[in-house]
Computed example of a mutant assay.
Amino acid sequence: MVVTRELADELPTEEVEAAKARAATLLLAFRHGNQLAFDTELDLLLAENAEREVTTLLVWVAAEAVRKAYAPDVADRVLRGLARRAPYGTAEVAVDEEAAGAALLLEAVAAGDVTAVRALVAGTPDTTYLLGGLVQAVAMMLPLLPEGEADEIAAELRRRHAGRLPTPRCTT
């Protein structure tokens, strides 16, 4: 049995269902070019200040559609392409490998600059390359650790994730 609890700022289930219906109305009107229905529903939402909830649901619907329509690597390429094709000045989303600042992230962490870390993460919607660069940096640092330190870190990670990690194989 799965137990869920409502967070303080979370919408009640009834409101989520109502918001889903409103998001579906917006999507149908947009898809079929019914500008009048789209504008009417959008005006109602703006008057009720429900923009955040409906935007979240629209993004969820879009993510589900992309997930069902494309293989994961293809879906990422499609979304990156959409971001790149946005008119200049409206999006300017950095989604390529060169824009992922793993070195900047490491420097900000080393300097204890929480604001810079948050800005880098928030400014990188496509974290694939950022996290990949971070993993590469950690791998490059491992040989610099004192003897036995990597084994202690691995043991601590195994303790934290007991039962979820495979046991190491003996290589002797």
Rank of each mutant, 00 (worst) to 15 (best):
M141F: 10
A63G: 09
T127R: 15
L145A: 14
A137E: 09
L58E: 10
L36N: 05
E15K: 11
P166G: 02
K20H: 07
A8D: 06
D151P: 00
L79W: 01
R5V: 09
T4F: 06
V74Y: 00
T4E: 13
R160A: 09
A154W: 05
A18T: 11
R84G: 03
R31T: 14
R158M: 05
T124C: 15
L57V: 08
E14N: 03
L142T: 13
A47Q: 08
E147R: 09
F38D: 10
D113P: 00
V59I: 15
L131T: 02
P72D: 08
E14M: 01
F38Y: 15
A111D: 09
E10W: 01
R159D: 12
E147H: 11
L26R: 07
E156R: 14
A71V: 04
L44A: 15
P72W: 12
A139H: 10
A139C: 07
A86C: 07
V59E: 13
E41Y: 00
Q136F: 08
L45I: 15
T128M: 06
K68Q: 13
E14L: 09
P168W: 02
W60S: 06
F38A: 15
G112Q: 05
A119L: 11
A108V: 09
V95A: 12
D73P: 00
A108E: 07
L105N: 05
L28V: 05
L79P: 01
R22K: 12
V2G: 05
E147M: 04
A65M: 08
T115P: 00
V54T: 09
R31Q: 13
E149S: 12
D73T: 02
D43V: 06
A83H: 10
A24R: 14
T55F: 07
T115K: 11
V54A: 01
A108T: 07
P143W: 12
P146Q: 08
E15L: 10
A19P: 00
R22M: 10
A86M: 11
A63L: 12
A71L: 08
I153S: 04
T4A: 13
E51R: 06
L79M: 15
M1A: 10
R80I: 04
Q35C: 05
I153G: 08
A99I: 03
T167A: 10
L11Q: 09
E6V: 11
A91L: 13
T56I: 05
A24S: 11
V61T: 02
